[in-house]
Design a protein around this nucleic acid. Structure first.
Lengths: 206, 206
DNA sequence: ATATGTGAACGGCTTCACAGCC
DNA sequence: GGCTGTGAAGCCGTTCACATAT
């Protein structure tokens, strides 16, 4: 099945299924129905089955899915079989928090370096990740063949830093700046816009 | 036009239009076409016009939109005419960063209090927002009629804290925990799942 | 001439209904 | 009987084409 026929949202959900399976494994459950797994993931059972169908047939009719097996399959599907190095540009408030955040490591990502215009600014001493000057970023990306980057610089310089990332060879950017980035088509950008999310919520409360 | 006929994503885009208008105002541009505004927002002109049409007619044919006027209208539409108080539960890495983050204030939100199981844990001294014990949260929400909350506690206690928020009367939650929250239908939840976004990106790079 | 506003067509994702298998 | 796998139907949001206004 070609990748671009798979709904983008389905990929997000597969990640969620994967997490739920992990929890089931910890609890030594070894079989799960689409109904139960879907409930845990907050979706409808048919949707779960449809999502899995994009990648193959993994269940046993009348029984359900083997937790360990399905979990392995999804890890494969998501391409998370090996650690993925990530860099981060902009080590301010948010950037520092992201460096300390354990959630990435847990999911198989490692932030290998940070970059900032003020690399020596005072920071939490238990940040072990090295922080270099932004000048060094392009060379670092090239040398270590890094494909993924987190962008947490102020909006005003986001596009410039993104350009450097692309120059170095970054293929995917997680963008925390409240800006619309212009990048070549082959580069993927996911945006996380905190103020936007709050604004959106405020619209719905009355 | 009834609120629930408007696509949820359209609301996000309206916030983005609003931001672009702000920038235009700063540059003393006073008229803008759907084409120009759409480009700045990263969408197609027809989509912009369709989005605005959900709320009324604001343009002049043959000319475009009056920047100041449209901006006012959108502020009204988004319900961001007055400051909105927000509380935050979980003042760890991420929570502290969010407290220091200026982007919320800029968009008309004020984090009025933080809550944590360890309210006296050592934190950046230039955080001015008071941090109380989580026990006090429900009473605080009630007393100050707070409607919006940010949830940045560990996944394992997210549901419990969310329940308290709902008990107090919170109507909208911005959830940073990698969990599917179960809340009454009338309560809105927007999730920001950092590891999920990275996983999603890693799927698309090859 | 130029740009908005909008019904209709389109496309993609979700849900349904049921066939297939244990 | 129970549960998965899947073509078909339904739904929702986006895009198109053009009528309308200045």
């Amino acid at each position: 099945m070609a990748k671009d026929e798979i709904p983008r949202r389905a990929i997000y959900r597969v990640s969620i299924y994967q997490r739920c399976l992990q929890r089931l494994k910890e609890n030594e459950v070894d079989t799960v129905s689409s109904q139960a797994l879907a409930k845990a993931a907050g979706v409808k059972p048919t949707q779960l089955r449809k999502d899995l169908a994009y990648f193959g047939q993994f269940g046993t009719r009348g029984l359900g899915y083997d937790v360990a097996n399905l979990s392995e399959v999804l890890t494969e599907v998501l391409g998370r079989t090996r650690f993925q190095p990530v860099i981060i540009a902009g080590i301010g408030n948010l950037g520092s928090a992201l460096l300390r955040y354990g959630g990435f490591q847990r999911e198989g990502f490692e932030i290998v370096a940070g970059f900032d215009v003020e690399p020596n600014r005072v920071r939490d001493p238990d940040i072990k990740t090295p922080v270099y000057h932004e000048d060094k970023m392009v060379a670092f990306i090239r040398k270590h063949q890094v494909k993924m980057a987190i962008l947490s610089v102020p909006a005003s310089c986001a596009q410039g830093v993104a350009n450097d990332m692309v120059t170095g060879g970054i293929q995917a950017i997680l963008n925390f700046s409240p800006t619309v980035l212009e990048v070549p088509e082959k580069v993927i950008v996911n945006g996380v816009d905190l103020a936007l999310e709050l604004e959106n919520l405020s619209y719905f409360i009355r």
